[in-house]
Amino acid sequence: MAKYGMAIDLNKCNQCGACVTACKVENNLQIVSKESAAKGRVMQWMRLTNLSYEGNDPDVRPVTIPSLCVQCDDPPCTKVCPVRATYKRDDGIVAQIYPQCIGCRYCMANCPYNVKVFNWFKEDQPVEYEKCYNKDVAVRMKGVVEKCTFCIHRLQKAKEQAAAEHRKLNEEDYIPACAQVCPSHAFTFGDLDDPNSAVSKLKRDYRKFVLQEELGTLPKVFYLNAKSM
């Protein structure tokens, strides 16, 4: 069984935000109204966040990382779900089952990475946005928690395509939208169980770091430090 993981090279990332937009349009995330946005209810599965600043004056630079669900190998969110609406799949993806979720938001409270979002409203979406919905992904109902799924619908489609062509799933068949669109190829996505995959090699890179390693959540999304200036 594959175990999917992702490496993000901060040396390559130039914070253009294409991954953020790609995630938004690929997964039909709701566009929230101004009022909701002011309350802090913007829906993003992926966002760019300023982690800290590095360097000395005058060359102070923000360390900005694209942050998404890190797909913990030992996810705190699945532990507390009362109805198994969020669970870890065999291939390592932490999935969220929207028709199952009761909306208690316990998983959000227990996520140390704050990457889950809640459908506070079912807001009216702009017509032009609705027309461009990705037909492979459900539009979530109000009152459920949602999260990054590593574009699991793409995995399903890739598996189906491979089965139709009577072959095994290749590494390049399945790639999440954020990794696909990145102009500077900062994302490397692949199978962590396969020691020869590109992402496994990067996992052994000296620049590798993961967010909040001390919590022991074993994230499968990891970062590569920017090389020194």
Partner: peptide, 13 residues
């Protein structure tokens, strides 16, 4: 080379 920016991604709408 397969990349695309935010503007291109949303150009359809």
């Amino acid at each position: 080379d397969g990349g695309i920016c935010s503007m291109g991604l949303t150009s359809i709408s």
